[in-house]
């Protein structure tokens, strides 16, 4: 069988997984993506984020995100000890061009990368009138571009502001955890391009995923837990002022 370079490379990530399985003595678990074997999530380590905006740019390039809209973005918080509940937040162009230098040497600063929380009880899929947005069997909240009406009800229902109406396609759009990548054994564009490892794609159904150890040993939080959306993007070291 003769394969060209492209085919070999396309197969390569799958082969890497296969190799891991072979090493682990379980070659039958190899390739061929099965949805029932995954439950995707993401881990974000606030203490590692430097606000470079690489994730925002990578996401925009990988997913052709229209200018002014964001599947992922980064916010910079400035919290003063005198007013813990009223943080000053900026996110110029979603952090796409990075952030201006912080000058006020009071309180604390930190960056909060945001993306769709891939909620297990997602309010956005609940309100979709036609079933154009849904939770896939492997736990990714997706939009069916061929079926969406563009009514924007889901945009209203998302407590995190993760959705937008695509100005050209006129359908709802949002982060789908780079589904075209993760089903081929790659990580998301944002995780691939995060220079500090502040973002890690995680598979909650994979017992070998380091996320399990991390969740057991760290103070991890989700955004707006009072919304009870079953959010699956976990934040390490999240400050209480973040909303």
């Amino acid at each position: 069988m003769k394969m060209n370079r492209r085919q070999i490379l396309m197969l390569m990530p799958a082969a890497a997984i296969a190799w891991e399985s072979i090493l682990a003595g379980t070659p039958e678990e190899a390739p061929n993506y099965k949805m029932s074997e995954h439950w995707w999530s993401m881990l974000i380590d606030i203490s590692k984020c430097i606000g470079c905006g690489n994730c925002v740019r990578a996401c925009a390039a990988e997913n052709k995100v229209p200018a002014g809209h964001f599947r992922t973005w980064v916010e910079r918080y400035h919290v003063d000890d005198e007013n813990m509940t009223e943080p000053q937040v900026i996110s110029p162009n979603g952090g796409f061009d990075g952030f201006p230098a912080a000058t006020e040497d009071t309180g604390k600063y930190f960056y909060v990368p945001k993306l769709c929380n891939q909620c297990a009880d997602s309010p956005c899929t609940q309100v979709c009138p036609v079933g154009a947005t849904f939770i896939s069997p492997d736990g990714v909240v997706m939009v069916d571009r061929k079926y969406c009406l563009g009514c924007a009800y889901c945009v209203q229902a998302c407590p995190y502001g993760c959705r937008y109406i695509h100005p050209e396609l006129e359908v709802a759009d949002k982060c789908d955890l780079c589904y075209h990548r993760i089903t081929k054994g790659l990580t998301t564009a944002c995780c691939e391009n995060c220079p500090t490892g502040a973002r890690q794609l995680a598979d909650l159904k994979d017992p070998k995923d380091p996320i399990h150890e991390f969740l057991r040993t760290h103070n991890v939080q989700v955004l707006k837990p009072q919304m009870a959306t079953g959010a699956k993007v976990f934040y390490n070291d999240l400050d209480g002022s973040v909303r």
């Binding site: 990988e62 997706m142 069916d144 079926y147 789908d176 589904y179 075209h180 990548r181 790659l186 691939e192």
Partner: peptide, 15 residues
Amino acid sequence: AIVDDAARPMFYAGH
């Protein structure tokens, strides 16, 4: 729709 989504083109090849 899941198949459609998984078939989108990649721009980052991965390390």
